[in-house]
Amino acid sequence: MSTADWPLFEVFIRSRHGLSHKHVGSVHAVDATNALENARELYTRRNEGTSIWVVPSNTITASAPEQKDALFTSPVDKIYRHPSFYELPAAVDKM
């Protein structure tokens, strides 16, 4: 048996209280507990975090690059969704 048989986990770290967990990389581990240990060794050697999530890589569903247009083009022309679209007099423009 070899490391290739060990499942892959994606690692997410909350760097400070109040921030979201952010993807930092991946580790191989025999199970989730072991993945947490490995992630701690590999990604938090310099105080990088206050919390770690590990997620089995094969449970992540990702959008495909070909879907980029279908998923993301439509908001581009909906500029009225941004506050800067609305022009207001200087007196109230800090709104």
């Binding site: 070899s2 490391t3 290739a4 892959l8 990389g25 991946s26 580790v27 060794e41 590999l42 050697r45």
Partner: peptide, 29 residues
């Protein structure tokens, strides 16, 4: 000891990056 542990960590980051290209870590080792 801290420096040597870093080097090992750097190796792991890079193996992870290589694995995203569809090659197994075992194969690389």
């Amino acid at each position: 000891a801290a420096k040597i542990q870093d080097e090992c960590g750097h190796g792991q980051y890079l193996y992870s990056a290589a694995e995203t290209l569809g090659v197994g870590r075992d194969e690389l080792l």
